[in-house]
Simulated assay, not measured.
Amino acid sequence: MWGISYWAVPIFSSLVWLAMLISMLTVWVYDGRPHYDSMDPNQNIAYISDVGASGLKPLFIAMSAVTVVTFDIAFILERWLRHTGKLTPNTSIWQKIYSTIAIVAAIAGAAGLILLSIFDTLRHPRLHNVFLGVFIVGYVISAIFICWEYQRLGIHFREHSVLRISFWIKLAFILVEVALAIAFGVMSRMKHYNTAAILEWTIAFVYFFYVLSFFIDFMPAIRSKNYQSNATEMDMARAEGGGMGDGAADGTQYFRGAPRTNDTNGFANGNGYANGHNGLANGGGNAASYKPEPAPLPSRNF
């Protein structure tokens, strides 16, 4: 139940982004697909930044800022949950370094989006393009390093399929977004602005799915903040003792106060209780041959 609050962060962030894109696209279509001042004379399809540079600039700035700030909070929250053991913990210092680089790159990408929405393409075209590059490159680098972290985690925790799912989603995002970004740059360079505009909208919608996918990462964090996950407890037990920490779980541990390696001989080889009964039954002879059952020692299964 506690995990629902963790899921809410990337879901909220992605929905804000989607609402902004749909609002901007709807307004442009509803207004009759106007040709904005920032558009090229041969351009018929508006860029997101063209719509954002018009009357929707306050919406563009506000919703872009909310999206990336909450998304970066999701990155930081994921790091904190791994540190506290509510998610599968990092197994090496390198994984922590990958995670830190991913957070820093995400913050840089967030700054790029906020700044490109402020320095619009109509009044500050050069700065707008620079910050657009910072936004795309920042989140691609962030995705690369968090993908790297998840790949290493998946090797150590093969029983957690969510790590593999998250890894492949992030890898797919990297491949798709890089391909689309290259195509966008080529089309813009060749002045095929309509094609470039379509690619820009596509990149934005793919980014929505990438942000949304982070709710999968928080699925294992479903226990109270006062407890660790079962997987984490088992991993810690294996790390500390090579076993479960319970005599009942380890065949080489004690059974009712004596090592289990001798319990079969103690009860069946004629040295104890069984031999005493045989002596009485077979002899009727010597009462001294009878050996009473020893009193059980206190159990060590606790």
Results as ranks from 00 to 15, higher is better:
Phe71Cys: 10
Lys225Met: 14
Gly245Phe: 02
Leu153Ile: 08
Gly257Ser: 00
Ala74Leu: 03
Ile155Met: 04
Met219Arg: 06
Met24Cys: 12
Arg123Ser: 01
Glu177Ser: 10
Phe12Met: 13
Gly283Gln: 12
Phe218Ala: 09
Asn226Pro: 02
Ala46Pro: 14
Ser92Ala: 09
Asp37Tyr: 12
Gln95Ala: 04
Leu113Pro: 04
Phe255Asp: 13
Ile165Asn: 11
Glu240Arg: 15
Arg126His: 15
Thr261Leu: 07
Ala197Glu: 13
His277Ser: 08
Gly55His: 14
Gly257Val: 01
Ile136Asp: 06
Glu240Ser: 15
Leu153Met: 12
Arg260Gly: 15
Gly279Ile: 10
Val16Gly: 13
Thr88Leu: 01
Gly285Asn: 11
Leu297Lys: 12
Leu163Lys: 03
Phe135Cys: 03
Gly242Met: 03
Leu115Ile: 08
Ser54Met: 03
Leu297Ala: 08
Gly112Asn: 08
Ile4Val: 13
Leu212Trp: 15
Pro292Cys: 05
His277Leu: 14
Ser54Asp: 14
Tyr207Pro: 15
Ile222Trp: 12
Gly154Phe: 03
Val69His: 10
Ser213Asn: 11
Ile198Leu: 04
Ala111His: 01
Phe184Gln: 02
Leu59Ile: 08
Val51Ala: 12
Gly112Lys: 05
Val51Phe: 09
Ser161Tyr: 05
Arg238Glu: 05
Ser142Gly: 15
Tyr139Lys: 05
Met63Tyr: 13
Val178Ser: 11
Glu149Arg: 00
Ile73Trp: 00
Ala62Arg: 15
Ile118Lys: 01
Pro296Asp: 04
Thr195Tyr: 08
Val206His: 06
Gly247Met: 06
Asn129Asp: 05
Arg123Ala: 00
Pro259Arg: 07
Arg82Ile: 01
Tyr150Leu: 15
Pro294Arg: 12
Met63Cys: 11
Tyr207Cys: 12
Thr100Pro: 02
Asn282Trp: 08
Ala53His: 07
Phe71Gln: 07
Gly242Ser: 05
Ala46Val: 10
Phe208Cys: 11
